[in-house]
Each structure stands twice: as structure tokens, then as C-alpha cells.
Simulated assay, not measured.
Amino acid sequence: MESTEVVRRYWSSVWSRNWAAVGQTLAEDVTVFWPVTREIIRGRDNMVAVNSERRNGWSIDVLEVYDAGEVVVSEVQVPQEDVGIFRVVSIWTVSGGVITSGREYWTLYGGEEGLDWRRKYTSVGDLPS
């Protein structure tokens, strides 16, 4: 299976809350780092638990999946009731048909305002996905 398909299957399985299928996309010793909070998730069971124990009221829209060989970059949108929309950029390493490591940048979409000094160079809006 191509690396991009492994990542697409991961996101599809998370969205459908098929936790056994999520586990099948992950190496037993997978390590995922979330730099924004400095959390490190070690092991398949912990990664499945982090996803499965997230409170309900969310969905996942896969915006892009980029293939770079064993490295796959995905961008997803995660609308969550009463919170807002998260955007997640993930850099996955895929080997042997499973995700072996990842780095995920979770941020609240539009959660920060641009700096005043940049306003003369920028505008605020949404680009089509």
C-alpha cells in the first residue's frame, strides 16, 4: 500500500471512530509529537486512546495529502462543537505499510490575530480549500 493511502486510511478510520482500524495503520512502537503542547505519544495503544477518548462532537475533513516517499504530509480540518475549527498539519513517516512516527501541529483556525505591523502587507480571509 502506498504511503499516502496509509495516511488517508488513518484519517478515515479516526473519522469513522473505527479504533481497531486506526490501530492497524500504526506501528506498535509509533511515536507522535505535538510541538504546540510539547506532548509525546508513545505506542499504538496510547495513540488510539488519545483519539478514542477525545470528546465527541467533531468531524474530520482531509484537505490535502502530499506524498514525499516515506514521508507524507497531511492537512486536515477538525470542526469541534463548542470549540471551533482546528487545522492540523501532520508530517508522517510511513514504513512497511504503517505509520512509524509523526509530528502534528494542531491550531485553532483563526485563533490568533496577525500583528499590527503586518496589516499593511496582509489581508484576513479564507483561501478556497
Rank of each mutant, 00 (worst) to 15 (best):
E104G: 09
W117L: 14
G114T: 08
G125V: 00
W106M: 05
R119M: 13
G114Q: 05
V124R: 01
W92Y: 01
L115P: 07
E104S: 10
W106F: 10
R118C: 15
Y109P: 09
V94S: 04
T122I: 09
G110T: 06
T122R: 03
G97Q: 07
Y105V: 03
G110V: 00
G111A: 03
V94G: 07
G102F: 02
R119F: 15
Y121D: 13
T100G: 06
Y105I: 04
G110E: 04
T122W: 05
L115S: 12
S101H: 01
L127R: 12
K120A: 15
G114K: 02
I91H: 09
D116I: 08
R103Y: 00
R103C: 10
L127P: 07
R118T: 15
Y105F: 03
W106C: 06
T107M: 02
D126N: 11
Y121C: 15
S95M: 08
Y109L: 12
I91W: 02
G96R: 02
S101M: 01
S129Y: 10
E104T: 10
G96P: 09
T122P: 05
T100Y: 01
G114F: 00
P128R: 14
I99Y: 03
G111L: 06
T122L: 11
E104M: 00
T93V: 03
S90M: 07
L127I: 09
P128A: 15
Y105G: 04
G96L: 01
R118M: 12
S90F: 03
G110F: 02
T107D: 07
Y121M: 15
T100P: 05
K120C: 11
G102A: 05
S123M: 09
P128L: 15
T93H: 09
L108D: 02
E112H: 11
L115R: 05
G102Q: 07
S95T: 13
E112I: 11
W92T: 03
E104Q: 08
D126M: 11
S129P: 11
T107L: 08
D116V: 12
Y121R: 14
R103N: 14
G97E: 12
Y121I: 12
V124W: 00
G110M: 00
G97N: 01
G111N: 08
P128S: 15
E104P: 02
Y121W: 13
S123L: 13
T107E: 13
W92H: 08
G97L: 06
Y105R: 00
T107Y: 04
E112S: 13
Y121Q: 15
T93E: 07
G96M: 04
W92R: 02
I91M: 05
K120H: 12
R103K: 13
G97S: 10
V98P: 02
S90N: 07
V94I: 02
L108Y: 06
S129D: 12
K120T: 13
I99F: 09
T93Q: 01
W117V: 15
Y109N: 12
L115G: 10
V124L: 07
G125S: 03
S90G: 11
S90P: 05
S90T: 03
L108K: 02
S101K: 04
G125R: 03
E112M: 10
